[in-house]
Structures are given as structure tokens and as C-alpha cells.
């Protein structure tokens, strides 16, 4: 299992601050597509994905127990 931490509006969209998903073996890009399809998070275009406190490219392969964070860029200033 992999813990996915949610921030800002993603937390609100899901009504919780984290969730558990089986992501090991998936690439970051595949996880993105999976979450868009299987959850109510909506489009994850532009959402940055960190694996174990490090941003990862779409080709990065997720391992068992990796902690994943979905970071939405917000525009306010």
C-alpha cells in the first residue's frame, strides 16, 4: 500500500487529508491517470507529485511503501 497525502483543494475534494492506494509498480504518470479515473479528484493536470519528499517525473516508478504527496500549485498572491 502507498499513502497519498492531499493538500489544499484536493483535501477538500476528497474530504480527507490522505488515502491509501496500491501504487507500487506504477509510474507516477500511471498513478496520475489512475487517480483521475478512479477517484473524485478530477483533473490532475498541473498537480505536482512528490515521492518520499522529492518531486518525481512521470516516468518514475513507485515502490512499495513510498509516500506520495499531491501538491496543487495555487495562483493567489
Amino acid at each position: 500500500m502507498n499513502k497519498i497525502m492531499l493538500f489544499a483543494q484536493l483535501k477538500e475534494d476528497m474530504g480527507k487529508s490522505s488515502m491509501e492506494v496500491v501504487a507500487a509498480g506504477k509510474t507516477v504518470g500511471e498513478l496520475r491517470a489512475f487517480l483521475e479515473k478512479e477517484t473524485s479528484l478530477g483533473s490532475l493536470d498541473g498537480i505536482m507529485i512528490a515521492v518520499n519528499e522529492e518531486f518525481a517525473k512521470d516516468e518514475w516508478i513507485i515502490e512499495e511503501k513510498d509516500e506520495i504527496a499531491l501538491i496543487p500549485p495555487v495562483s493567489g498572491g
Partner: peptide
């Protein structure tokens, strides 16, 4: 490099406050 596309999520100070 960090954000490939212009994000348009609609979360602004006018919609969710600050």
C-alpha cells in the same frame, strides 16, 4: 519544469479566500 501546463484550478483568493 515543475508545472508543465498553466494550472487553471479555479482556487483563487476570490473563490476560497485567504
Amino acid at each position: 519544469c515543475l508545472i508543465k501546463k498553466l494550472p487553471m484550478q479555479g482556487q483563487t483568493c476570490d473563490t476560497v479566500g485567504i
